[in-house]
Design a protein around this nucleic acid. Structure first.
Lengths: 244, 244
DNA sequence: AAGCTGGGCTAACCGAAAGCAGTCTCCGCA
DNA sequence: TGCGGAGACTGCTTTCGGTTAGCCCAGCTT
């Protein structure tokens, strides 16, 4: 890591609060133990415990739960700047698995270092708590989508949300973004079959709303999409008054 | 509150760690500001902020999100011993609404008292964190259900989960439990129509698995239900090693 | 007694999404 | 250079679950 200011996590946090020299320094010291993992091989397995937590530096990961019948539900995707398994480290139990979607680079964070960082810079602790709470809000929003949105709106909403998240770390814009997910990933995340995902994507493309092709999501009509899917980024952008 | 040992929250926490005199005392002092609310009137409204948190002492509550199109998704139900709006108090933002399902009694908890209690008894803080994390795990499980389980299995799983939670606070057993929910509540929670909820309940009843009638859930074949729905209570029962 | 209302319940109809089956293309590799 | 696998894509059939439209009953109002 040449410069901590280039770290996606820093970029994300910087949107919500100005980090002091001290805080940046603590962040920097967390960023030591850098490790790589290859796509497809599970990082943490369902039920496993005593794992380290990671901060994702590059690449995409998904967290999912397997059903007894073999189907899986993807709970969330992690993009650079996101935490992996923060909860399972704090509570020593992991109730879902993580699979790198692409080759990834992640920084290993030990519980002790984390707790140490928290006591040194309480504002940073608050920022991390804020990030964790935002993650939870995303899961809730995901639940609402799967429970109450049509397949089309669900897809649109999901891709918009990803776009908004990527924008925060400088990897996307209202035009679109590079997206390494397969249609199978989308299916497992949205509770659809891969076949139906394909049909939905075609429909969205043909109605001029968005294009999902060749590893790229292009918003052909951003405002139209927002209206169609009922996307409200409040739960992603909301600054915590405590941190102001 | 005649005796803190009778409080549902205490019962719940006691299952996972033995509380010391000191900790019980701190809990007791949190249980002062008791308040009542009537069924149907919202406690906290979507988007509202700066709310107090509550510990539910008696009655049932649901937390839900409204969609622009008027449909709603119930994210979770709260039963005695559960927190209401803990996250919104810590982060000063509320992203969903709470509606009492029945008349309820709740204890108001102020942020300062809470933080104060945490510094005095760190083990209690860890216990609360554990409870919050368990809530999150339930939301994830809920997401899996809505995304990947058939309507029948989803219903069975959901009612089993509620049963397991109620058992912890002494309000249910493997035989069944009193349940004030209407079929509309079930529909909004499970992402089904009320009509289909009725069909599903009939089917479960006719196949001798469970009976939902007259405000009561009866498990006619507990083991059969567990197998059918793939219910694994690990995420509810799991003790945190940190607390041992 | 008539008239609400809320909750439970059912039937008939229909659409959304799954399942199945198969093609096409790209790419790695033996 | 030909094989095999992954991923994208499509047509056809089936099924699950939503929608509409009601009925019944109990508990209230007035």
């Amino acid at each position: 890591m040449t410069d901590i200011l280039e770290s996606p996590l820093t970029k994300k946090l910087q949107v919500f609060l100005a980090l002091s020299e001290d805080e940046l320094d603590v962040l920097k010291r967390l960023h030591l133990r850098r490790r790589s993992f290859t796509a497809g091989r599970d990082l943490v397995h369902q039920g496993q415990s005593d794992q380290a937590a990671y901060i994702l530096a590059a690449g995409w990961v998904c967290s999912y739960k397997l059903q007894p019948d073999g189907t899986r539900q993807i709970v969330d995707f992690q993009i650079p700047g996101d935490f992996l398994g923060l909860r399972s480290v704090l509570l020593r139990t992991s109730d879902h698995s993580f699979e790198p979607v692409t080759d990834i680079q992640a920084v290993e964070v030990l519980v002790d270092d984390l707790l140490d960082a928290f006591t040194k810079t309480p504002r940073l602790a608050a920022a991390f708590l804020w990030a964790a709470s935002r993650d939870e809000a995303m899961v809730v929003e995901h639940l609402v989508g799967v429970g109450r949105r049509s397949a089309d709106a669900r897809m649109a909403h999901f891709l918009l949300e990803l776009g908004a998240r990527l924008k925060l770390v400088g990897m996307g814009s209202k035009e679109g973004y590079a997206c390494p997910l397969t249609q199978y990933h989308l299916a497992d995340a949205l509770g659809l079959s891969a076949v139906h995902v394909n049909r939905v994507l075609r429909k969205l493309r043909e109605s001029g709303l968005l294009t999902f092709q060749d590893g790229r999501v292009t918003f052909d009509n951003y405002d139209g999409l927002v209206g169609f899917s009922g996307f409200d980024p409040a739960y992603l952008d909301q600054t915590d008054p405590l941190l102001k």
